[in-house]
């Protein structure tokens, strides 16, 4: 199994940390992983993205030009990455702030109202964990157990008290994934 994915949105949405937690969860599940971020000016208010690869084989290139999965969290990223999903691949997006919804019919498309669900949970910062939960429902590449271990590893110890809230957000996302199109 090899999952080549991109997570793309605005800086501050937790794009990079979501990728990091996923990568760490892959490490916990004894997979090979790579995490390749956009870095520099785009991190400060512009778009941010990270390519995460999880595989049971040695990873060749950490940079790819087509993805098994794209998690898209703003319009700029939709414009850029929808066309880069492999045929039969998966696109997951949050419709909040999206003016042009995905149009392809040859890929699986899922939707998650992450912004609203996170607000309902009482902490908008859990947005990325809601999206992560939705992704795991669509593509169960790692177990919930590995996610918990991944959170423990990637969060500094002083933030470990927040792990239950984060897991609650992951579960909420998992429950509320909406199917738009399946191939």
């Amino acid at each position: 199994m090899t999952e080549e994915m991109i997570i793309a949105g605005f800086g501050g949405q937790g794009v990079l940390s979501m990728g990091k937690i996923l990568a760490y969860s892959g490490v916990m599940a004894e997979q090979e992983v790579s995490w390749f971020p956009s870095y520099g000016p785009e991190m400060r208010g512009g778009t941010a993205n990270v390519t995460v690869i999880v595989s049971d084989k040695r990873i060749s290139s950490p940079v790819v030009n087509e993805y098994d999965t794209a998690i898209i969290l703003n319009q700029q990223s939709m414009d850029k990455f929808e066309k880069m999903v492999k045929p039969g691949g998966t696109l997951l997006y949050d419709p909040n702030g999206i003016s042009r919804h995905p149009e392809r019919s040859d890929i699986n498309i899922y939707k998650i109202d992450g912004t609203i669900i996170a607000a309902d949970l009482g902490n908008v910062k859990t947005f990325n964990m809601v999206v992560l939960g939705a992704y795991l429902k669509a593509k169960p590449i790692v177990s919930m157990d590995s996610i918990e271990k991944g959170l423990e590893k990637s969060l500094p110890e002083r933030h470990h008290k927040l792990i239950p809230l984060n897991l609650q957000a992951v579960e909420a996302g998992y429950e509320k994934l909406e199917v738009v199109n399946e191939v």
Binding site: F36, P37, V63
Partner: peptide
């Protein structure tokens, strides 16, 4: 280079 410097791997 910046790619290997910025990326995370095991």
């Amino acid at each position: 280079d910046g790619a290997i410097g910025q990326m995370m791997e095991k």
